[in-house]
Write a protein that binds this DNA or RNA. Structure first.
Lengths: 191, 191
DNA sequence: CGAAAATTTGACATGACTCAACTGGAGTGG
DNA sequence: CCACTCCAGTTGAGTCATGTCAAATTTTCG
């Protein structure tokens, strides 16, 4: 169960199995049925989720009242409002399962305590934040300079699992286009 | 001269004048003529710039060979490849003055030394990074869901100085549209 | 002043949106 | 297990936003 998390951490920082076992009590396993809200916009009690199985999406409601998907997460990835989590402000995102999902939850109020027990972990979160920043920056550049059809092709190429498991209207929202447009893009791609 | 920097820091962390004076030697004043490259893509020796007067832009070259502006900075703001700066990787951005510019340069290799002399400053950079992340996230959301005309209106409303001093083709690039489109948007706005 | 750069304009092509309708499949209650 | 409903996805028609290319105009600057 925690194997996945252990492997994940060791991609960024080197943890011994002893260190990892002191970490484990901070992560709380949870399960949610599909289409269930994990965190609702405006919530203060922040946590982040590391997915073991299943998938989630994070979204916010734009001025027009439209759901705008900002994150799509599958297993072995975090889903969170990272900014609210680190800053302690109320969440601006709603996070919801797409499939039945099993995940490890980590609460922000445990973070400071954990920093003292294991300083390494602070470095991990800094790296996590940096990567999120770069990823967002790349998505921004793509959104501003690459047509939606190309962005879709790139997405399904780099994340084939997303194409297989995430409903198209969520992918469309993530790409910033309408479901109709995505449908036409897919039609064109299949010649 | 350094007054501006002092005020800026105190927006995020509280510094005494004594603390600030130990900080000053780390900041190196420089001047560059307009349209001069400050940092070129691929450079390793990273630094970040706090503008005293003038303006700069950061951009990278997209696949199509087109300059894509990712940052526009006026006085009292930083301009940098923050990710490369903190991670120590080569820069992916080129940074260039738009106007004659006077700025304070801070080198990445001074950062660790400064962290020891003044732990507070680490907190400052973390906040800077968080704000950059949120700002990029907001730009992404806007790029995906708001038409260019509205984004332009919002930009000149929140940053009238940019509209006054930055050439339109750079603003167009920053908004992810062509200069021709921005010209037509401006025409329409003026009824 | 004259050259180069920035901005605008025109004509046309394309990408993406909206609204409406249709199709097919998954989920639900009896 | 079936009939029904609901939702996801597709399709069509028309419109709007933005891009491309070419050229004219204005501004900047040596």
């Amino acid at each position: 169960m925690e194997q996945a998390l252990f492997r994940h951490f060791n991609q960024f920082i080197s943890l011994s199995t002893e260190e990892f076992s002191t970490l484990i009590p901070y992560f709380h396993i949870r399960k949610l049925k599909k289409k269930t809200i994990f965190i609702r916009e405006g919530a203060y009690a922040n946590s982040i989720a590391f997915l073991i199985t299943g998938s989630m999406r994070a979204y916010h409601i734009s001025e027009g009242g439209i759901e705008q998907v900002t994150q799509l997460a599958l297993e072995n990835h975090w889903v969170s409002d990272l900014y609210a989590f680190l800053k302690g402000t109320p969440t601006t995102l709603t996070i919801e399962t797409i499939e039945d999902t099993e995940f490890l939850e980590f609460y922000s109020h445990d973070m400071d305590r954990l920093y003292e027990t294991m300083p390494k972990i602070e470095r991990y979160f800094r790296i996590l934040f940096q990567n999120a920043y770069v990823h967002t920056q790349q998505r921004l550049n793509a959104a501003l300079s690459i047509p939606a059809a190309t962005r879709y092709s790139q997405l399904i190429h780099t994340h084939p699992e997303i194409a297989r498991r995430i409903p198209l209207h969520h992918i469309a929202s993530y790409l910033g286009i309408t479901p109709e447009s995505l449908s036409r893009i897919r039609k064109k791609i299949m010649q």
